[in-house]
């Protein structure tokens, strides 16, 4: 807890300044005070947590899940074959230059207001860090250890599971830690651009009603999801890479 002391102080100061500023400006539809947001959050808790949250969580879970599978498969393929690496890598980079916000309405056209338009947005922005860092992890496998396995008569399969996978894990987790908060952003953007439910959608609806506190309340929930997911990954990483603890 002591590690977070300075952050907590900083956030508290920031919130106090915000509170004072908001009361001074007195235009809650553009700048709601933190206390107003908190009150709004409490009023809307049932609707936000029971109705909109599950919708957004589903987008995050499906999007992140597909990204994981896709990213790991791409990384393994590029690791196995140099030809595949040369084919895939440039496309991978290019995919990151796509302005997703501009493209998202097209996904809405294709998939309607179904969950898939949001899932696609989430996948596009999360699979990249997972793929690249997992691939880098495979590549970081020590050449000398590979040779040692070879001199012990290890099969390709043993080399992969007993050497390359453990070598790639630390890097994989770094990628996952980047991807997880981005998945929340992806889901929110997707919903913002076309949805009938979800935290992003709710925030946007409040915007059209000039309800400032109502815009912020779901955003608070979104960032809490991001923090919780991040902590989960960190704990999982600590557990799986327990050898790094000294």
């Amino acid at each position: 807890m002591k590690n977070y002391l300075y952050s907590i102080i900083l956030i508290t100061v920031f919130l106090m300044i915000w509170e004072a500023g908001a009361r001074f400006v007195h235009a809650s539809f553009i700048l709601p005070a933190p206390t107003e947001i908190a009150i709004k959050l409490w009023e809307l808790k049932a609707e936000l947590l029971l109705y909109h949250l599950p919708v957004t969580l589903a987008v995050i879970a499906i999007g992140l899940g597909i990204s994981l599978v896709l990213g790991v498969i791409l990384a393994i393929s590029m690791n196995i074959s140099e030809t595949l690496e040369k084919a895939i890598y440039p496309i991978l980079i290019t995919s990151q230059t796509i302005p997703i916000i501009a493209l998202a309405p097209i996904f809405v056209l294709w998939f309607g207001y179904s969950i898939w338009s949001k899932v696609i947005v989430t996948i596009i922005i999360t699979f990249f860090p997972i793929t690249v860092s997992t691939f880098d992890g495979f590549r970081s496998t020590s050449k000398e250890l590979k040779e040692l396995f070879q001199t012990l008569g290890a099969s390709k399969r043993q080399l992969f599971f007993k050497l390359e996978v453990p070598s790639a894990l630390p890097s994989f987790f770094s990628g996952l830690k980047v991807a997880v908060p981005m998945s929340v952003i992806g889901a929110a953007i997707g919903e913002w651009l076309g949805a009938q439910a979800g935290l992003g959608y709710f925030s946007r609806r409040m915007m059209t009603q000039f309800n400032g506190a109502g815009v912020f309340a779901p955003i608070v929930v979104l960032s809490l999801i991001g923090i919780l997911l991040f902590i989960t990954v960190v704990l999982l990483e600590k557990y799986i890479l327990k050898w790094r603890r000294s």
């Binding site: 000398e144 250890l145 001199t151 007993k162 050497l163 453990p166 890479l241």
Partner: peptide
């Protein structure tokens, strides 16, 4: 390959394996 015991120039232990797991690698592979 697999016919001679070889100890390379660096100790080359795998950081994610314990002493016992590192040492027993040849048995595990076979």
């Amino acid at each position: 390959s697999g016919k001679v015991g070889y100890m390379p120039q660096q100790d080359l232990l795998m950081p994610w394996r314990t002493v016992q797991q590192n040492a027993a690698l040849p048995l595990e592979l076979h």
